[in-house]
Design a protein around this nucleic acid. Sequence first.
DNA 1: ATTTATATCTTTTTT
DNA 2: AGATATAAAT
Length: 746
Amino acid sequence: MNLSHLNSIQQRAVTSTEGPYMVIAGAGSGKTSVLTHRIAYLLEAAHINPSNILALTFTNKAATEMRQRIENMVGPAAKNLWLGTFHSIFARILRKEADRLGYPRNFTIYDTDDSRALLRSIIKEMNLDDQVYKPYVVLARISGAKNRLITAQAYANSALYQADDESARKPHLGTIFLKYVDRCFKAGAMDFDDLIFNTHQLLRYAEVLYKYQECFRYIMIDEFQDTNMAQYAIVKDLAMLHKNICVVGDDAQSIYAFRGADIHNILNFEKDYATLSVIKLEQNYRSTQNIVYAANSIISHNKAQFKKVVWTDNDVGEPIDLIRATTDAEEGRLVAASIYESRANHKLRNNDFAILYRTNSQSRAIEEALRKMNMSYRVVGGMSFYQRKEVKDLLAYLRLLINPNDEAALKRIINLPKRGIGANSVDKMVTAATDHAIPLWKVVCHASSFLGSRVGNTIEEFAAMIQQIAAELSQRDAYDIASCIAKRSGLLKELHEDKTVEGLGRYENVQELLNGVKEFTTNPENEDTSLAAFLQEVALATNADTVDQEVTDKITLMTIHAAKGLEFAYVYVVGMEEGLFPSQLMLESRADLEEERRLFYVAVTRARQRIFLTYAMTRYRFGRLKHCEPSRFITEIDPAYLQMKTQRALQVAHSEGYARRLVSSIARNAQKPPQQTHAMNNFQPSDMTHIEVGMQVAHPRFGRGTVCQLDVSGDVRKAKIDFVDFGEKTLLLSFAKIKILDRIPE
DNA sequence: ATTTATATCTTTTTT
DNA sequence: AGATATAAAT
C-alpha cells in the first residue's frame, strides 16, 4: 500500500488502526483522503474482512464518493463494507430486527411532509389551534426530543418539559407527541429521527447489541461534528467491545446544530475515551494563503473552538473580491459577467465555478442572469425529483402496497384520482380505527359497516384493487407491479389526459419514476431488488446526491450546506446581506451567530483560488422590494484580505439598476388600476435624488430616446429623455407609456 | 363532493 | 410572488 503522497501526520492517521482516535481535520487538509486510505489500509495491510468495518457518513454523496475511491484502491472488496449514512445503515439494521420492536419488516419511512401532515391531522383531531401548534414547530420539538433519546412518555411525564411548554403556551405538546408516536407505530412507519432513535432502542437488547458489537470491529465516523447525541450514543455502544473507533471532524465546520448536531460530542469525546489519541491535520492543501487566512479571521470571532491553526504552503493568491450590486437581478448579472470574464482570462471551465447561497430561493435571480448570457449551469438541491407531487403520488401507491397501514400514503391517494371519497370519510375511518383499536386498513376493507354502503362500497372497491395487486407482489417484479398500479389506479390516465405543458412534464416524471424502478430492479449491484428496498432508497435519497459526474461542464449553484465536502477553483458567495446571511431568524432569536459564522467559513474554504462575495442593496423578498444592509460578516474579515471592486463600474451599475426598476415599475403601473401601485410606493431609492442613466426607451409620441437623468425625489418621477427627433424632453413618467428597450452598448 | 374565491404565510439550512 | 389553507359557492 502506497502512502508516500501523504504527509507524516496523515500517514499516522491512516495506520493507527487500534484503539480510539480523533482526527481533527481542518478544511482542505485531506480528510477524505485519510479516511479512504485508512479503510483501504485496514483491508489490505491488516487483512480485515470488509464486513467487519463500519464507516458512517452524513450524506449519500459522501458515502458513494468514498466507496468509489476505496474501490479504486482495493477492488470489489469495497462492496461488502458497512459504508453509508447513519440513516441508511441504521435502516438496514432495523429492517433485519424490526420485529423485536413490534414493527413490520416492511416499515415505511415518513419524510418531513408525511410527518407534518400527520401532525396536522392530530392537532385538528384534538381541536387545538394550529396557529399555536404549528406543525413544523411541533415537529421540531419532537425531533429535538428524539435526538436526545427522550421518549414520548418521558417527555409527557417530565415536569420540566411540562413547565417549559406551558410557559410557551403549548401545554398539549406532550400529548401530541404521544399520539404522534402511537400513530406512526400503528401505521408501521418511522420518521427520519426514528431511524436513529429506534436503533438505539434496539441495542438495548443485549444479544442484539453483542451481535453488532462483534460485527463492527472497526468503526469510523466522518463529519463527526455533525452527529447528534443519539447517533453518538449508538456508536459509543457499538464501539464498547473492540474500542477501535476513529472519528474525523472539524468543529469549525459544524453547521447542523439546527438538526440536533451537538458540538459537544467532539469536545467531550476525550472524556469518554481515556486512552484517546488526537491527531490534528492543520495543513491546508486546497486554498491560497489569502483564502485560508481570511477564513481564519472569520472564525476567530467565535468563542468555543478546538485549538487548531490551519495554515498553508500555497501561493498568496488574490485578495477576496467584494462586489456590490443594486438589486438581486443585478447581482446575478454581475456574477455572470465576472464568471464569463474569468473563464476567458484564466482558461477555466464551467466546472471550476460554484455559486453558493444561504437559501435555495436565491438561485432564481442568478439562474435568470446565467440563462440570459447562455452559460450552462446546474442547480443542486431545491425541489428534488422525489418531492414532486405526481412522483410522490405514485410512490404513495407503492408504499400502500407494501404497507397498507401507511396512513400518510393512504390519505394522499385514496381520492386520487377523484373517486368521491372526501376528507370527511377518511377522518371517520381514522377515528373508527382508534376507537375500535384496530388497524386502519381493516376499517378501509370493511368501510361499509362503518360509514354506510354509499361511500363504503366505493372505498371497499378501492381497497380490493390495492389488495389484488398486493397479492401478486411476490410473483411479479417490482417494475411490473409499479406500472400495473400506475395504470389500474387511473393515475397515469389522468395525467395523460392533461395536455398542458406542465401536465406533459408530470406524465414524463411518472414515467421516469417507473424507469427508475426498472433500473433499480435490474441493477446487478443491488442485492435486494424488492419494491420495499426501492422505497427505502428513495425515502433516504436527497436532492443533493444527484450522481452527476463531471461529464458535463457546468457552473454549480447550491446552498452552502450542500457544498460541504466539495471544492472549486472560484467560489461566489452571493447574498451577503444582514438578514439573509446571517439569517433573519438567527438575528431575531437571541442565539449567537457562531453557527452562521461557521457556515460562512465553510463557504469560503471551498475555494482553491478565488473568492467573490456579493451583496445587493435592494432585494425582492415575499414579492416586496426591501432595502438591504451588507452582512456584518464582511466587516469581520481582516481587511488585509479584502478588496472592493472599482467604484466607477459600480456607480454605473448602481444607477442603471435603480432606473430600470423604477421606469419599468412606472410603465407597468400606468396600465394598472390604482390599488396595484403599492409596489411603486414602496420603492425607496435611499438618498438619491438624481440618477444618471443610459437606457433606451420608446414613447408613443416622441419615438425612441435615451433616459439621461431621472428625478426620484419624493413622489416626483420625472425623467429627462433625449429623443432622436425631438431633442431633450422632461416627462412625468406616470403619464407616459414608456417601453424599455435594451441598454445601449457603451 | 367539488370547484372557486379569499386569506394567510412563507424562507434557513437536510437525513 | 407563489404556495397552501380556509371559506364560500356551486
